[in-house]
Design a protein around this nucleic acid. Sequence first.
DNA 1: GATGAATGAGCGTTCATTCAT
DNA 2: GATGAATGAACGCTCATTCAT
Lengths: 199, 199, 199, 199
Amino acid sequence: MSKRQARFDQLRETSKERIEQAAMELFAHNGYGNTSISQIAQAAGISKGLMYNYYEGKEALLKAILQKGFDLGESMISEGREMATGGPEEVLRFIVEVSFAEVVRNPEYWKLLTSLAFQDEVMKAVAPEVEVQKQKHIGMGVELFRQLGYPNPLEHALLLGACLDGVLMHYILSPDDYPLEPVKQLLINTFCKKFEPKS
Amino acid sequence: MSKRQARFDQLRETSKERIEQAAMELFAHNGYGNTSISQIAQAAGISKGLMYNYYEGKEALLKAILQKGFDLGESMISEGREMATGGPEEVLRFIVEVSFAEVVRNPEYWKLLTSLAFQDEVMKAVAPEVEVQKQKHIGMGVELFRQLGYPNPLEHALLLGACLDGVLMHYILSPDDYPLEPVKQLLINTFCKKFEPKS
Amino acid sequence: MSKRQARFDQLRETSKERIEQAAMELFAHNGYGNTSISQIAQAAGISKGLMYNYYEGKEALLKAILQKGFDLGESMISEGREMATGGPEEVLRFIVEVSFAEVVRNPEYWKLLTSLAFQDEVMKAVAPEVEVQKQKHIGMGVELFRQLGYPNPLEHALLLGACLDGVLMHYILSPDDYPLEPVKQLLINTFCKKFEPKS
Amino acid sequence: MSKRQARFDQLRETSKERIEQAAMELFAHNGYGNTSISQIAQAAGISKGLMYNYYEGKEALLKAILQKGFDLGESMISEGREMATGGPEEVLRFIVEVSFAEVVRNPEYWKLLTSLAFQDEVMKAVAPEVEVQKQKHIGMGVELFRQLGYPNPLEHALLLGACLDGVLMHYILSPDDYPLEPVKQLLINTFCKKFEPKS
DNA sequence: GATGAATGAGCGTTCATTCAT
DNA sequence: GATGAATGAACGCTCATTCAT
């Protein structure tokens, strides 16, 4: 029994992974709304019906994919946390670098995620998790800017976050043209430094 | 005759405005692709068919909505150009202020516009001139930062643009929570100033 | 009153005629099903609504147009009857000539009429009148072939009618290519002659 | 595996045949343009959506129906070619007999085909090869009449073709009333014979 | 008589979902 | 677990028809 169970689990995992991989790529390339279950099934090499053994429906599949992305982000950040041994500047710089690297590595995923953010209905379904992530990021930023001596760390954290998102959004929308590297350097120089009181 | 014509014109305008208003809200909240003509008609209090008396189709309706926004933006910018009489810092500050004011005034329009940016096909069909606008804005920024003495004005223009878009995106996505005013001030303080060489 | 009545009648007649003329041309060129009331109204230079002052609806307009055609055909034949003074051969020849001439004069109308013959629903509405016309034509043919001495005049009448319709159908379907004149002559030579018993 | 495949194949074929049968009847009686997918689905006892599992769309369904007819016609003609061993009169007679038999066997198909001939757009999209078939038939006729000694074989071929089409059209339009057999005999006697120079 | 804004049923088509096998 | 035939609601859109003016 245990053996057969294991084999089933493996098949299941294989099919699930193929589905999620295919769906992720199709959602990212064509958008969630423009991707049909048929397309996903075909790309994953399975039948339409099988999808419904694993997921309640299309939206549940989307949620699973987003969740995977969140988990990945989570683990990356916690890994990063441990690796960043320097002062708050270095940690900030590290976060920025990692964010850029991650978006460059998989811009389609981030494009999907951002485009979903503009659809209230979809967002409502995923909102709690997103909100948690957002607050965690802001919290981290606030703490770092506080350590750097800024009198208004929340505003600085928000502005940095916005700037990060803005640059990455522009990059995502024209990845071939955008001078990402110099803008990143400028962003780091502008934000990742100790508070300098006006003389 | 003129009377009858006037009556018809008024009917038309009333209906068109109701349609465009309803459509913009729905497009902004649910996305263009997830909003059906039926929904628009229902929200506007008219029948599906009537829409097609006024617009060629769904896409033409979107175009009409965007065009109105463009026209408004154009006129605002040209007005602004004349009003900004100070040095480049003041002009930059003014641009930032106007951008914020405009988005606060009509957040749904900007939400719609931003969400469309992530749907290449729709955007290209509907507003090829967006790219031109973008280049014009960047050009303006570059010129101003050059005047302010920055050695790398393009990067500064891009970063400011990204920061602006990032803040406004965050605001658009949660307009009730976002501390827009203080972040705006910080943004202005951070970007709208002469070049300060490192000592 | 009589004067005003007369003016109204004239206007009405004018509009009606413009409508029927426009509708006839559009029906003939594009088919009944592919012609919209809007198109007819536009072509006739009137409003959509006015049509419904004169006709119950689209189908009633079609019936009116067909009826006009029938009446015209009727009058042509009765005129012809009087004019044809020769023997039965000459009368037959005359009928054939007139039929060809009429179709050449207004092939679109005949194309419309023929295409309608294949739509049971439409035909049901016009059927009685058509049936009467058909029987009248057959009757005429039978009488003429009887006079020419044929032992089976009905079959000859039917065959001639079929041949006539067949040639004209082929002509209608490719009016530019079809060698109408020689085929007509051959048809006349083949059918419009006295009975020749086999030796 | 093979078993399941076979079951599915059978289901598909059953459904396809029901669809094509229903569609042909409706197309023939109401015209292609006046027959809706809903009607076809209802008549075939399936859902609207299922049609699109088997055919790209309405036009593809029409093509499939016509193609089946073409294939059948082709095979019949090639069979006939081999069977007709007599002189040109016998061949001509045979062609006429086969044409009549075929139309009697499946009048709805021929009604559909003829009605389509009057809708240029549909026909061109659906069966460009019809023109080729027509030329082939005319060519055959010309050759036979030449062999029979006629000085103007083209006109005779065209007239026979027209006569054939005319009779069959009349039959198709009122199959219950039309005295097909005697008219056919008369047609054969009239056309399928050697050239007889006028004395 | 004449207008055209407004309606709503229907079109061809798509696609997430169900279910018998 | 896996299949794909089958469903039906919804889509964008068309157009004959109605009616207040």
